[in-house]
C-alpha cells in the first residue's frame, strides 16, 4: 500500500510540475483513520496529502463533469470509479482529453459500519491495509487480520472487475477476494411480497438525496424530483413518494449504473438502493448484452439500436 501510495504521489507531482494537468483529484487523510476525504491538489508541494488505503471509498468521478469543463484534471481512481468515468465519457459529460487517469488495482474498500462491529474499539483504529486478500487493522497496540467478508463493502465482495479498464498510468495490484460471495438477491420472488419489501424500505427514506448526489451518473442539471412543474414527485417523505423517486431514478440509470454502490453507502437509513440497480443491470445484461462502463468506444445503451434488440412490446412477460 505504502509503495502504491508513494507512486501515486510521484505521478501526481510529475503531471502537476509538467503542467500536464492543473489539478489532481484524489483521496486525502480523513478526520479519522478509518475514513478518507476527497482532496483537490493544485500545487506539486501538496501531493503528499494524497493517500491510498482501504478507506478510499469515494467514487471521485462524481466531481469530474464540473471540474474538467475548462481544464485538464488528473484523477486517482479505483476500477469502479473508472467505469463511472467511462460512462461519463460515453455520454459526453467528460472529455477524455481533459482527464488523466491514475488507475489503481483494487483489493476492495471497507464498510465503516462493519468495522464498528469487530473485536476492537473503532476509535482505537490507527491504520488499515490490505494483506494478501485480507484486511489488516491496527487498533491500539494490536493488529487484527480480518476476512474481507466481515469488513468490506457488499459491492466489493461481488466485484470481479478489479483492474482499471482505461488509464494513463496503472499502479497497484488487483486482488480478488479468496472466496467470491455471489451477489445473492435479498428480494422476495413473489411480486406482492416484493412490493411489501420495497414499501418497507422506502418508508424509511428521508429524501436527503444523498444517493443521487454521490452518483456520478446523476448529473442532470435539474433532477425530475426537484421539478415543480410538472411535479413528478412530492417533497413529503412518505413511502409512496419515495417509491416514485427511487423507481424513476432506477429507470434513469438503466444501462448506465456501473454498480459502484455509492448510493447504498451514502444512504443514512440503509435502503438497499443498489439492489434495485442490480436488478436493472441484470435485465440490460441479459436482454441487450450490455454492461455499463466497459469501454469508452461503446455507444451508450440508449444510443444504439439493433433490429434484433429485445422489444418489450412484442415479448410481454407473463
Amino acid at each position: 500500500m505504502d509503495d502504491v501510495q508513494s507512486r501515486i504521489r510521484e505521478e501526481a507531482r510529475k503531471v502537476l510540475e509538467s503542467g500536464q494537468v492543473s489539478l489532481v483529484l484524489g483521496w486525502g487523510k480523513g478526520s479519522t483513520p478509518f475514513k478518507t476525504t476527497p482532496v483537490f491538489i493544485e500545487k506539486p508541494e501538496d501531493v503528499d496529502r494524497l493517500v491510498w488505503n482501504p478507506a478510499c471509498v469515494n467514487n471521485l468521478s462524481v466531481y469530474l463533469p464540473k471540474l474538467t469543463k475548462d481544464k485538464k484534471v488528473a484523477v486517482v481512481a479505483k476500477p469502479c470509479d473508472i467505469r463511472s468515468l467511462i460512462t461519463l465519457i460515453q455520454e459526453r459529460q467528460v472529455s477524455r482529453d481533459n482527464v488523466y487517469i491514475i488507475g489503481l488495482g483494487c483489493g476492495g474498500v471497507v464498510d465503516v459500519f462493519n468495522l464498528d462491529e469487530q473485536d476492537f474499539h473503532i476509535q482505537d483504529v490507527t491504520g488499515l491495509d490490505w494483506d494478501s486478500g485480507k484486511l489488516k487493522v491496527t487498533a491500539g497496540s494490536s493488529e487484527y487480520v480480518l476476512d474481507c467478508s466481515t469488513c468490506l463493502r457488499d459491492m466489493c465482495l461481488i466485484c470481479t472487475k478489479r483492474s482499471p479498464a482505461i488509464f494513463d498510468v496503472e499502479l497497484g495490484e488487483a486482488v480478488l477476494p479468496e472466496e467470491l460471495c455471489a451477489g445473492q438477491s435479498v428480494l422476495p420472488d413473489i411480486p406482492e411480497e416484493r412490493r411489501r419489501y420495497w414499501s418497507e424500505q422506502f418508508s424509511r427514506c428521508i429524501r436527503c438525496y444523498a444517493c443521487r448526489q454521490v452518483c456520478p451518473s446523476c448529473y442532470c442539471t435539474t433532477c425530475f424530483a426537484d421539478r415543480i412543474e410538472p411535479k413528478w414527485t412530492a417533497k413529503k417523505a412518505t413511502a409512496d413518494e419515495a417509491w416514485m423517486f427511487h423507481a424513476t431514478r432506477a429507470m434513469h440509470l438503466a444501462g448506465r449504473c456501473i454498480a459502484c454502490g455509492e448510493c447504498e453507502r451514502a444512504c443514512p437509513v440503509d435502503i438497499p438502493i443498489a439492489e434495485l440497480q442490480r436488478e436493472m443491470n441484470k435485465i440490460t445484461s441479459e436482454r441487450y448484452k450490455y454492461d455499463a462502463g466497459n469501454s469508452e468506444q461503446d455507444k451508450p445503451l440508449f444510443g444504439q439500436f439493433e433490429d434484433e434488440d429485445f422489444d418489450p412490446a412484442h415479448h410481454s412477460e407473463k
Binding site: P38, I206, R207, C208, A210, R212, Q213, V214, A266, P268
Partner: peptide, 11 residues
C-alpha cells in the same frame, strides 16, 4: 468537497 446532499441536516 460537499456534494450538496441533505444528510448532515436531516440526521
Amino acid at each position: 468537497r460537499c456534494v450538496s446532499c441533505g444528510v448532515c441536516t436531516y440526521v
